[in-house]
């Protein structure tokens, strides 16, 4: 019996997201694929990524329903997944009451940076992007 399962969504198709010994499920989101008219090539690409993730159970249908049923089958009380900025994945995670793990950010940008134009973001992001990995963070 495991306390937690991993819900692998379509922004985390890497074996590095898996926790050893923890069951994991991926669900092809039927409503999304149909409603956006997703190409077969895209589905094949996702399938190829999943082939590199041995042990992940793959299902198709209603994401929330399938993940919930998977957690129940594994007697898990906790569903873990990666936080996303996509409103579709956010809504599904909310509905599942999933525990969100933060993927490693590209840069540690302070909250509240003006995003109206790339140039405004870039003014704050540039020094962080061009910092050598060994350099300490500057105060921005």
């Amino acid at each position: 019996m495991s306390a937690a399962v991993t819900w692998v969504h379509d922004e985390m198709l890497s074996a590095t997201v898996l926790t050893p010994g923890q069951s994991a499920v991926f669900v092809y989101d039927e409503a999304w694929l149909r409603c956006e008219g997703m190409s077969l090539k895209r589905i094949v690409f996702m399938h190829e990524c999943l082939c590199e993730m041995p042990g992940v159970e793959v299902r198709r249908g209603d994401v929330v329903h399938e993940v919930r049923a998977f957690a129940e089958r594994h007697s898990a009380h906790v569903i873990e997944t990666f936080a996303s900025r996509d409103p579709r994945l956010q809504a599904q995670a909310r509905e599942l009451g999933a525990q969100l793990l933060e993927p490693e950010p590209f840069i540690d940008l302070p909250a509240g940076v003006d995003l109206k134009r790339f140039s405004r973001y870039w003014r704050r992001a540039e020094p962080l992007v061009f910092r050598k990995p060994s350099e300490p963070a500057e105060k921005l």
Binding site: R85, D86, P87, F106, I107, L109, V113, L115, F118, Y121, W122, A125, E126, V129, F130
Partner: peptide, 15 residues
Amino acid sequence: LQELAWRDYYRRVLG
């Protein structure tokens, strides 16, 4: 690196 930052920027705007 700047093009990679464009992706980060758009993701943040989406957020």
